[in-house]
């Protein structure tokens, strides 16, 4: 009896947290998403907001673009983070390991806003890169590198790096060096050892890192709006503008739920494709 009571008491904070901060607001949001404004202070219940999403090509396009760009950003982050993580986990020794890890962490000491501004200073027409290129004689006039999809990608990858490096370092550290040596000893070269031994071992880290990075990119607001420029369509931006600029909470809430559905679907599909389960990845 008292054991059960203490169990409940132990779980209380978690349950409260889940209930009050996650489940309750979502239920409320869901009801809001089912409402449609028909006049001043008058609302009607129905699926009109969801219908609006599926009939407006702009919303669908933004939705698809956000998903594809996020997947791309995740893939790029993985490609860049893997060698970094491998170096930290397997090549660097002792104090170096810590120092390198710290380097990955440093950008996170400042806020995302400042980090994004940093990139703007580097990439803008009168910015550092442009000036260096002109000084080196590689460019005749100022080069604009800001306000395009590439700049946005750079920002997304930069913001996500750490969240890919950490799980990768953890899984790669658990890879026994002798497995790699055995791979070579039995006739493998660098490529085959990577493909057949290192990569399969790192799959749980890759999957969990990718899930986090994908979610972060999908839900990112600052980076796409600030670095992306006039053509940067990002779904979170659309949700923000529905809520704040258009006062259309109803459509914004519906968008929010669609984004939730999208991210859940893509994560589920990625887990299925890689043959992983959520428990395995998180455990």
């Amino acid at each position: 009896m008292s054991a059960r009571l203490s169990l409940w008491l132990l779980m209380l904070p978690v349950l409260l947290w889940l209930g009050l901060l996650i489940i309750l607001p979502h239920i409320d949001m869901f009801f809001v998403s089912l409402r449609t404004r028909v006049g001043v202070g008058e609302y009607e219940y129905g699926l009109a907001n969801y219908a609006a999403f599926f009939t407006e090509p702009l919303y669908l396009r933004t939705f698809a673009r956000t998903a594809i760009m996020s997947v791309l950003a995740t893939a790029l982050t993985l490609v860049i983070a893997f060698p970094v993580a491998y170096f930290i986990a397997k090549v660097a020794r002792g104090r170096w390991q810590g120092v390198l890890f710290l380097f990955c962490l440093v950008p996170f000491w400042v806020s995302e806003l400042v980090r994004t501004f940093g990139w703007m200073i580097l990439l803008r027409e009168t910015g550092v890169f442009s000036s260096v290129l002109q000084w080196a004689g590689l460019a005749d006039g100022p080069v604009e590198m800001l306000y395009n999809d590439a700049a946005m990608m750079v920002g997304l990858v930069y913001t996500s790096m750490l969240f890919m490096v950490v799980p990768l370092v953890t899984t790669l550290q658990s890879l026994d060096d002798s497995l790699v040596e055995a791979g070579y000893d039995l006739g493998g070269n660098g490529f085959t050892v990577f493909r057949e031994i290192i990569l399969p071992h790192a799959v749980p880290g890759i999957v969990s890192g990718s899930i986090v990075v994908f979610m972060l990119s999908l839900g990112n607001y600052l980076t796409p709006t600030m670095l992306g420029g006039k053509d940067s369509l990002w779904f979170t931006e659309m949700i923000y503008s529905q809520f704040i600029v258009r006062f259309n909470w109803e459509l914004g809430a519906a968008f929010g739920f669609l984004l939730l559905a999208l991210s859940s679907f893509i994560v589920w599909a990625a887990l299925k494709l890689s043959g992983q389960t959520l428990e395995k990845t998180l455990g």
């Binding site: 702009l58 933004t62 369509l233 258009r246 259309n248």
Partner: peptide, 19 residues
Amino acid sequence: PAGLEAIEGAALDRVKAAN
């Protein structure tokens, strides 16, 4: 007047999305 923002909003969204 209430309601105009919705018209403007949709137009601005389309401008943003145009290429």
